[in-house]
Design a protein around this nucleic acid. Structure first.
Lengths: 357, 357
DNA sequence: ATTAGCACTCTTTGTGTTTGAGTGCTAAGC
DNA sequence: GCTTAGCACTCAAACACAAAGAGTGCTAAT
């Protein structure tokens, strides 16, 4: 059943107002809006119908109306106005992003912090890999007489390293043998392939330096797993306290602990097959604990076969338009940034102008 | 002016009770304590005097007494009983710590989380270096035709790496030259030595592969600076909400934002020259914002010329005895753990028993 | 020196009472 | 027919006021 234009307009006004004030909206407040040419009685009738249809709710008889989940849904899907980012906003986002980011985990932390700042809500960021990573090459560098550095080059252009103390004096030639064996047997494998059987075979083949193999294998598995698994960061939990719905400390605490935990760890998975910006309104949420909150999230491209995701968590009554706009812009800017060729050994021109209309 | 034994006993009881209940303590409550053989009137007199001496405070005429800052000070310095950790507590701390910790920053995050868990308060952890780090050796590994991996071995046994895209085809021999030049000129230096002058000299000496020098130098400086600077992590901010004094969201929010910021960054510095466990009571605190809170912190040894610090932030009415005990034990355990020789290539015996009476 | 006793203070708690925003419905108006 | 003015009704929030209770300081008795 389609809603009349007028009903939509009323619904939209209610949601807009409620987002602004966090207080139930009465019929009078609606009539006072510009270009609302009906009397409060008419609005009351409309609101009564919207209530029976399930788009609005009444906390108690003599209160105004509050959007129900279905109301929010309709609002985000159809009714809300596009929020236009101001030049200020885009600029501050750009400036924030342009600092160089080193490692993925640090990057995620930073991004989460930035998003949280930009939206004034708790934010999550995550990165995950499409396929699985494998080792492309092993390299052993003698550091000094008693230690050697293992360098692992991965299929995704990343590099990991570890210092390994040598149990006994080991000859340079032994290390070369070991290196050759590693490259011959352990490249292109996933952590699952690292069986006890393989371990034994490699150790036998490695000969003198075979004692190093268990450490190497363990470290390698760790790195691969670490790279394969979803990496994520949360920032700005305390911002929830700024929201009137969480003035009640108990409520806030409950959500906070959920935020800290792994209830969020399936959010990235949800984005996996989605495109664009996704809004989960209240009860549509994954975790039961989040049924009074909404989640807005979107993807961005990291390159190197990695997929990023940013999102924020907030009260169902959050400013979807603004949040969605900022998030999308963030995602876009991040994708652009990662798409830029690594600022390589180009002698000068370290600085590039970033202005965009 | 020394306090009489009885006054001390009363003061101690007041603080103990207040720590437990978070409510002003009345004379009657004190008399009900075991081995308190005086009547409430006597206690009242004592409390009145303690109040005029500045050890206690009265929220209002008909309320009980609350410890004043001086009272807490005396309490932590002289009066509080040693808290004996239960076997359970030591064990759970040990188990928590024994997981392997990889990088320093990850380690700090984990430690902060653990400490926060153990104390049920927000925790900070930090690590800083005694001297300054320098590069011991540079190594360049050709990864494929268009990229090379820079491996930097530092004076503290740590290793950093970075993938550098080559601007143009570069010969293996050029890289060898570059490597030699780097090792000859840029080892043993601090970031401050990396002047434009040095850059030019190295670039000239490096010849064909000189274009890589700026990137290398920048990265090196970054790594050295990163290693030199104090690294820190905060965890469990939300635990503050569990404390009755922060049921007022505004208060909580204020402290929280202070926690997040760099007001804490001078805490590690304070520990620098201190030994053992240090307690900052309320107004003794560094940041004005923390005047209603206390900080307990202690040092631990990371080895490799690094110094660690853990601390917690909480209401002035926190259980100093318990917190101090847990913190000290944590610090001890951590020091022990880092003192253990790196679990190197010893073929088996991966597991060691940890039981201690 | 200690303590019982008591008047006094001031917060907390409870209880009606009032207020006012907002509603649903009916009947009049366009 | 839709719209709107009007009105009785509901109910949370705000207020005022009283009573309760915890704790004190002081005095006088032990």
């Amino acid at each position: 059943m389609e809603l009349t234009e007028r009903k939509k307009k009323v619904l939209r006004s209610v949601v807009d107002l409620y987002i602004r004030t966090a207080e139930p909206v009465g019929s009078k407040a609606i009539t006072e809006l510009p270009d609302m040419k009906y009397s409060s009685a008419t609005i009351r009738n409309e609101m009564a119908e919207l209530t029976t249809m399930g788009y609005l709710e009444q906390p108690h008889t003599s209160a105004g109306r509050v959007p129900a989940a279905a109301g929010y849904r309709l609002y985000v899907d159809e009714l809300m106005a596009d929020y236009r980012l101001s030049l200020d906003e885009t600029q501050s986002i750009n400036i924030a992003i342009e600092e160089k980011m080193q490692r993925v985990d640090k990057m995620l932390e930073k991004v989460a912090k930035l998003v949280s700042q930009a939206t004034d809500l708790p934010a999550i960021s995550a990165a995950s890999r499409h396929g699985s990573t494998t080792v492309r090459r092993f390299e052993l560098i003698a550091a000094d007489v008693s230690s050697v550095i293992l360098v692992i080059m991965l299929s995704d252009e990343q590099v990991a390293n570890k210092v390994i103390k040598l149990p006994v004096q080991t000859l340079q030639s032994d290390l070369q043998v070991l290196s050759a064996v590693l490259n011959a047997t352990m490249t292109g494998l996933t952590p699952d392939d690292f069986t006890a059987d393989l371990l034994e075979r490699v150790m036998n083949a490695a000969g003198a330096a075979g004692a190093l193999v268990p450490v190497i294998m363990e470290f390698t598995a760790e790195v691969l797993r670490g790279h394969g698994s979803t990496n994520m960061a949360v920032a700005g939990q305390m911002r929830l306290l700024g929201q009137p719905e969480y003035r009640d400390v108990d409520k806030a605490q409950k959500i906070m602990s959920t935020l800290d935990e792994e209830a969020l760890s399936n959010l990235p998975a949800i984005m996996q097959n989605q495109n664009g910006t996704k809004v989960l309104v209240g009860p549509e949420n994954v975790a039961q604990e989040l049924k009074d909150t909404s989640v807005v999230m979107t993807k961005f491209d990291i390159g190197d076969g990695m997929q990023g995701m940013i999102g924020v968590v907030g009260p169902t009554r959050m400013d979807y338009a603004k949040v969605t706009a900022r998030l999308s812009y963030f995602a876009e800017s991040l994708s652009k940034m990662f798409a830029k060729p690594e600022q390589a050994a180009l002698p000068q021109s370290a600085e590039e102008p970033h202005k965009e209309a």
